[in-house]
Design a protein around this nucleic acid. Structure first.
Length: 592
RNA sequence: GUGCCCGUAGCUCAAUGGAUAGAGCAACUGCCUUCUAAGCAGUAGGUUACACGUUCGAAUCGUGUCGGGCAUACCA
């Protein structure tokens, strides 16, 4: 047990049933740990908290806690503990022993969780919104895993419905080699070679699809005829019209090629299962039909089927349209049922934007009405919007129509180009390319992860690919400095005897104490589902390390024990960095 | 209208109800013959939108006001 656990159990022993806090004070001069137990007790005892604090102090001192240097009572009634420095030396040993397990815990041991993330609106080129979902979802999944859970990751390919039909229409109308050709499914079916492929258009599949989808959507909005055309495509698709299906397959192939390329580039292609809406929507309809027969839902005069969510105090929603076709929620019912069957999870998470909040609640409610688990098993994890500044400088939502939707590929290209120019280390062209690509991806991911999950964020290209300050580059740079030091020391960290360690410098002691807080940081990020606890941690760690680096010359240290101990500390910091990067889904670099 | 989220330094963001609200950027001043200056040290910048309340203690909790965003049945 570490000092915190010991103190916690002692306090609980003496004062059972009291909810108190035991935490590392922000101000280091207040000691290593602080408790408010006397302030809490003063409420029920109606006595001066300082008196109570002194009594608590006396009781604790009777335990003769060997790790404690001093216990002090301060206004208004805090009890502060100061520990012997040597206690912390064990932290370095622990980290070196546990390696990639350092920080992990077992609070979710035995639990199976399923987390849906990055379910694409795949008709668009992979953009920042997609990436925000991907990095947030993956990071939370890694955090759950580090807390001991068995984690499965899945996504649903929304490959049917009105949006897909708008793309199909967009292709027929805007990808013709000759504009005089008719916008006709039948004509296309007989003359497919008269329509462009992405290769022929000299565009990436993602961009190709994105442009056609956007054009198709504009036409859909502006023309009644187009709208009818598109809606008919949806109906015909559900009726399994051969020509319709062939066009659908063709466009969906490009969609996925683009999506797979982009996700591959950011190393975000991490799914245990990819579901396809086209495979399950029919079963979804059957669930609705069953619910209708059971009297859970009702049929409206025009034929549409409506929920009844009074017991959940939620607004009702349509489950099947009046033309008989399904909606997103229709297939989501079957999907949720399938998820339960396949993975038998204790908890299910959906990492999806906040605008879907009501839709998610409605879906959870309907699932529980249909007997697919409890409403409380389901968790929507929303995250803040990404805004950009418009010409007037006002924050505005990204949208493809306003052209301010950053394609992730373009962003990485820009960042990578900027970074390449800064590399001064002696690297081959190939290594240089790899390093700038990794740093570019890491920078953009970091900029999305460093804000509190629920907080809207204003995205700025320059700060997101910043090379200094609170950025991935700064943190990764700190890590390469460590790697460089270890390498130049010519010491094999695995061979150093760590039975005796020596640390004397204030900053190195602070660093060690800070490292000891990593496990608690992970727990915090789990309880809030917020990866930014981790980014905050490694940024602060980087600052402390760089301060240390500037103040202490490690390689020139002549005291062998001190020098070896410091190299081991460096290794420990490196391990915590790497563990954090894994939790964030960020790749590190060896040199830069 | 109703529901949900948000409002912190010029800008972008931190801060399990806890002690003097912190960083980064931008601005200004210093530090490379010294382990990677993509770095470090320093100056300046605040009525935490506003009001009232709960509490020993409020940016944080409650109520209200103002401002912004999202959702609000046949998009997702």
């Amino acid at each position: 047990m570490n000092p915190k656990e010991i103190l916690n159990s002692k306090l609980k022993e003496v004062y059972p049933d009291i909810e108190f806090s035991l935490e590392v004070p922000k101000d280091k001069s207040h000691g290593d740990l602080s408790t408010n137990i006397a302030l809490i007790l003063s409420k029920s005892l109606k006595r001066n908290p300082l008196d109570i604090a002194n009594e608590v102090k006396d009781k604790l001192e009777q335990f003769k806690l060997e790790f404690s240097n001093s216990i002090s009572v301060v206004n208004p009634g805090f009890i502060n503990f100061k520990f012997k420095d040597e206690i912390y030396f064990n932290v370095v040993k622990d980290i070196l022993t546990l390696k990639d397990k350092y920080g992990s815990n077992n609070i979710l041991k035995g639990k199976t969780v399923l987390i849906e993330h990055t379910s694409p609106n795949p008709n668009k080129e992979f953009h920042l919104g997609h990436l925000k979902n991907n990095v947030t979802g993956l990071s939370i999944s890694y955090i759950l895993e580090a807390c001991g859970a068995k984690v499965f990751r899945d996504c649903i390919d929304n490959n049917r419905g009105i949006a897909i039909a708008r793309l199909m229409y967009g292709y027929l109308a805007h990808a013709k080699k000759d504009n005089s050709l008719p916008t006709s499914l039948e004509y296309w079916f007989e003359h497919k070679d008269q329509w462009l492929t992405p290769t022929e258009a000299n565009k990436s599949p993602g961009k190709f699809v994105d442009e056609l989808y956007t054009k198709g959507s504009i036409d859909f909005k502006e023309s009644k005829e187009v709208e009818e055309f598109v809606r008919k495509l949806v109906v015909d698709w559900e009726n399994e019209d051969i020509k319709n299906l062939e066009l659908w397959k063709l466009t969906q192939e490009w969609v996925w090629e683009g999506y797979r390329q982009s996700l591959g580039r950011v190393k975000g292609w991490k799914f245990d299962k990819i579901w396809h809406e086209s495979d399950i929507y029919k079963k979804g309809k059957e669930h609705v039909q069953r619910g209708l027969e059971l009297g859970i839902f009702k049929k409206l005069d025009d034929g549409a089927i409506l929920t009844n969510l009074k017991e959940f105090k939620l607004a009702d929603t349509i489950l099947i349209k009046n033309d008989g076709t399904s909606l997103y929620i229709t297939q989501d019912l079957e999907l949720t049922s399938l998820k339960r069957k396949e993975f038998n999870p204790d908890e299910m998470y959906w990492v999806i934007g906040p605008e879907q909040s009501l839709a998610m609640k409605q879906m959870f409610a309907v699932c529980s009405q249909l007997g697919f688990g409890e409403y409380s098993d389901y968790h929507h994890i929303p995250y803040g919007f990404i805004l950009v500044r418009d010409k007037e400088g006002n924050p505005t939502k990204m949208s493809s129509r306003s052209g301010n939707q950053h394609s992730v590929n373009d962003l990485i290209d820009k960042a990578s180009e900027k970074i390449r120019g800064y590399i001064t280390t002696d690297l081959t062209d190939k290594e240089r390319e790899e390093v700038s690509e990794k740093l570019a991806v890491a920078s953009i991911k970091y900029s999305l992860l460093k804000v509190n999950r629920i907080q809207d964020q204003i995205f700025d290209l320059n700060t997101s690919i910043a090379l200094e300050g609170d950025s991935a580059v700064y943190i990764l740079y700190s890590n390469t400095r460590i790697l460089s030091l270890i390498q130049k020391s010519n010491i094999d960290v695995n061979l150093i005897d760590n039975t005796n360690l020596k640390y004397v410098n204030d900053i190195e002691l602070e660093l060690i104490k800070y490292l000891s807080q990593f496990p608690d940081t992970l727990i915090n990020s789990y309880t809030t589902y917020s990866p930014n606890d981790i980014t905050n941690f490694i940024f602060n760690l980087s600052q402390s390390f760089n301060k240390y680096y500037n103040e202490v010359n490690i390689l020139k240290e002549e005291d062998k024990l001190l020098k070896d101990s410091r190299i081991l500390l460096l290794k420990a910091i490196n391990i915590v960095f790497e563990n954090s990067f894994k939790l964030l889904g960020i790749e590190s670099v060896g040199r830069m």
